[in-house]
Amino acid sequence: MEPTHNIRRLMDLYRTMSRIRAFETAALNAHKEGVVPGPLHVSIGQEGVAAGVCLNLTTEDRITSNHRGHGHALAKGAGVQGMMRELFGREGGHCRGKGGSMHIADFSVGMLGANGVVSGGIPIAVGAAQGLKMLRSSAIAVCFFGDGAINRGPFLEGLNWAALYNLPVLFICEDNGVSAFTATDTVTAGPGVIARAASLGVPGVTVDGNDALAVDEAAGRLVAEVRGGKGPRLLHAKTFRITGHTSTDAAAWRDPADVAAAKARDPIDRLGLLLADRGVATADLDALRLAVFEEMEAAVNDAKAAPWPDEAIAYEDVQDVGAVRFSGVSA
């Protein structure tokens, strides 16, 4: 039994994870149906990380994300309708239909954007932390990236930089063991992300990312340290991506035993069992899961019915000075 976790907090985690799962499932189905253009990177199986980390953040805190960013955005409080419309490329999307899944962002809740470039969000988060510190804000920056990102230069530069200037940034290495289609440990030398972070002056801890409580507790401690001015920290959350790399990858290349084992460690089921243990009625959990399923189904229907953006919108949001205007005639 985890004494620091009251039922309400557990239910918050459960709800956030369930909403992410329902969103991802609905999006994936819509993609299969052919109504979502472009590829999706969904985070089914990894929900515990986004939920556990973001439960410890305020709206003022900023996050940056990677290509697999729907869960991070939802956990940070991004509006579902704007997200789904964005995936569909429709009017009313958070990015006006110009970003899509890979560039999902909702600045109104401190979600500074998913990123199509592996490790692209790391320098941005570091700089956001530097700016927040300069402005004497109590907010912090949190940076989500995958295990594949630790092999790019910006990871090393960014951690060095964050430690050097003692910046309020929490790095989250969401370790699902794969860099796209390749096992990360087959392309990564040395003892791993924690040792790399330590060598750059960033203390880190490893948690079971499929245990949302463990993530919540560890993130809570690290967020408090970061907010308290102790400098950057890193959370290494080990998890598993149940679905493929992209929406078009059936993941048939994977060892079925690994997938079966991962499903047995499904973060949502695990928390559900714990909640039942703590006396929450199964019917209440089922009702919650049905409600979030309906919420996402409604978002899909809304997105399907939403109009396509006007051609003129393609010419907007480029720059103020030197902007090219829409002639009114299609090119």
Partner: peptide
Amino acid sequence: AERVVSTPISESTIMGAGLGAALVGTRP
């Protein structure tokens, strides 16, 4: 030193951190 920041030789992060700092309201 907070507004005149000598950085490591880390061009990716000089550029990217400048962007991040702009996103929270400073003008690097």
